[in-house]
Design a protein around this nucleic acid. Sequence first.
DNA 1: GCATTCTTGACTAAAAATGTCAGGAATGTT
DNA 2: AACATTCCTGACATTTTTAGTCAAGAATGC
Lengths: 138, 138
Amino acid sequence: MRITSSIEYAARLMLTLAREHGKAPVSAESLSESDGIPSDYVSQILVKLRRAGIIQSRRGSSGGYSLSRPPAQITLGQVVRAVDRDVFEDVCGKYDAGAKDCRHQERCSLSPVWVRLGGVINDYLESVTLAALLQEKP
Amino acid sequence: MRITSSIEYAARLMLTLAREHGKAPVSAESLSESDGIPSDYVSQILVKLRRAGIIQSRRGSSGGYSLSRPPAQITLGQVVRAVDRDVFEDVCGKYDAGAKDCRHQERCSLSPVWVRLGGVINDYLESVTLAALLQEKP
DNA sequence: GCATTCTTGACTAAAAATGTCAGGAATGTT
DNA sequence: AACATTCCTGACATTTTTAGTCAAGAATGC
């Protein structure tokens, strides 16, 4: 249970884009430099963020990436989920004890606890918006 | 960010031992069968739980493992920490931005958020005791 | 037409999780 | 004392995940 590089990177990228919200799109290359992320890796993360619908892209010269909503309407939860699997998607898949790919058959006796933990984590992540983070770190 | 097998296994083991609290020690072999954990793997997890001080072991015939405290005095947090690294021990090590092994130098701008998330997770895990779990799943 | 920039998917490398194994040390029983 | 039982330790192998790289292609603006 830890914060992976992808999560950290995604959060940094979103924060940078939040600062540029309303201005011109930012290129992947520029984001790579300003946020200290390998340039070939940054694209992959940006793709996930775009597919999650929280950023937009524009190709061609003077193209780049920008938020698709105001910073106040994007939560950390949305960012984390864009690049990471669900928190409560655990050893038993999605705790669907009946699922045929469940590695532990009927032994998932603890599911309710993990689901509740996932809820707690999610509630916190949803309570933090990019706008709030910006206020903290302008 | 997910619940690993070790965590799930550790929780199952502790719950089983909680049920046997006050009775004779339970052997690793027996635990392996009752909790559906590979027998060579179960020992490794038990070692970690013992080193964390939440279970005791006794060697020799009729030896085995038992809780070192009543179920009401053992929390899920103690169990999870015994087998897993700290939740807030993330990409930046322990978010000690000055540390020389920090992979991201001064860019750990988000640390406060992750630390707070770690706090939220920890608070929940500390609020759940083995006794409470037993009541839920006797 | 051309440089710029994103898009996609395949690929490699490193790290972590998961599981296996073997030899040794303590304990209780006979 | 001999023996079976059980834990202890550390090394090893396998699989999965994460992290990062690469290359060919497609859209865009000038």
